[in-house]
Design a protein around this nucleic acid. Structure first.
Lengths: 226, 226
DNA sequence: AGCAGGACATTGGACGTCCCACGTCCTACG
DNA sequence: CGTAGGACGTGGGACGTCCAATGTCCTGCT
């Protein structure tokens, strides 16, 4: 069988990007040009481009053109969020799994960076902990800054992706909870362990943080109304 | 500004799925119905649906209908593969990062399952190692079976996703290499450590495996021709 | 009565055309 | 010289028409 035609068009456009060695930010051929290059109608070309945009492979700018995208992982958050929601008939198992993956990655990662952080970096983490009680985004920034020195852009985006999806879904858990004080304390314990240069204690602190998160999930029963 | 209209249509369709509590496999309204429900033309509706299909949120069957998808992570592999390729102007840094993420996850996970595997499971892993030399898919199956007992479907799909993307890209590395004997030996060492119930040795064996993979990547210079 | 085959309705796939909205850039005017 | 305005090119969106794939159901043969 010839696979789904729409998928083939998408693959041909991706192949065109590779063949021309276009890099993120560069312009793709215009829609009329693609119609000619691919021998397809404008509708078909647009459908393929829309699909590629959903995957972050291209970026469309109205009135300007279509450009190669960077495929940042955060474009995948709708898919991940949907996946978790849909696999959660009434319970919360899929969300627990998501937190467990975060735990797995971050407990492993913090062991890699423990002992490598400068005092300036630790002070910046302290500042983020202080802001955390009133600014949720400080939480995300904390985890990003923590692992920045590891030098792996992919893992940073992965962690940010999971953070975003978790907090998006957590906000609609029923019943809602606000244990921000515990969250702040857990993060402070992590920084303290890092300042002490104790990798084992840092891992334990990170694991304790996620244990609390898993318990928060376990206490929830279902999703709140949209 | 009101965000991109196409994205809004996608969100409205996802909201419709949630509102009607449709579960994976159930049918969505037909395209004419969606045109009426969303007040959009068929082209716009189709573009939105195509984008959702690219994210695995819906599944389209020609002549049958449109159905809720399961958002399996493997639909995201085109995006991940593109990301790694595009961020690799001439070097191979992004692929190294990908392997490093695999290492992080699997080294952490094997510590969780070490000592919990039955002899039957270990024998099945032995059998996969034996097939590995001639059947590449045994490698993927090995990692899947290894962590199956952990009971986290998300992490299984994540590992499969990264495995697929890595091996897809590895196949077009220049120069090509065939170190299948080393790969088999590394996997055997992992099974042996698990049979001994030694979690520390199992982690070390897994880390050694990925160290070899990272070195294989480091020896490559660029992508081969398509 | 049972089953095989085809006609039919339904659904998505594709194309062509038209007009609109948005950005850019150049020109002409002050 | 600076700026306002418009020309141009790009993607956004809407119809309308026809094609293709699928599943169903009815017919007719055995």
């Amino acid at each position: 069988m010839t696979r789904r035609n729409g998928v083939i068009l998408q693959q041909r456009i991706v192949a065109l990007i590779h063949d021309r060695q276009l890099t993120p930010g560069e312009a793709l051929p215009t829609e009329p040009m693609l119609m000619d290059l691919l021998g397809a109608s404008r509708n078909s070309v647009r459908e393929a481009i829309q699909a590629l945009q959903a995957l972050g492979i291209v970026e469309i700018r109205h009135g300007h053109g279509t450009f190669v995208g960077s495929a940042s992982l955060d474009v995948l958050s709708p898919s991940l969020a949907f996946r978790v929601r849909s696999r959660t008939p009434s319970g919360i198992g899929a969300l627990h799994d998501l937190v467990e993956v975060r735990e797995l990655i971050e407990v492993g990662l913090i062991g890699q960076v423990a002992g490598t952080l400068s005092e300036a970096r630790l002070a910046a983490l302290d500042a983020l902990v202080a802001r955390m009680a009133t600014d949720l985004s400080a939480d995300r920034a904390f985890h990003a800054l923590l692992y920045e020195s590891f030098g792996n852009e992919l893992v940073l985006q992965l962690i940010a992706l999971f953070w975003n999806v978790y907090h998006d879904l957590e906000a609609s858990l029923d019943p809602p909870e606000d244990r921000i004080a515990d969250v702040v304390a857990n993060h402070q314990r992590i920084v303290d362990a890092l300042r002490g240069g104790d990798a084992t204690e840092a891992r334990a602190a990170m694991r304790a943080h996620f244990t609390d998160v898993k318990e928060r999930v376990a206490r929830a029963h279902t999703w709140a109304a949209r």
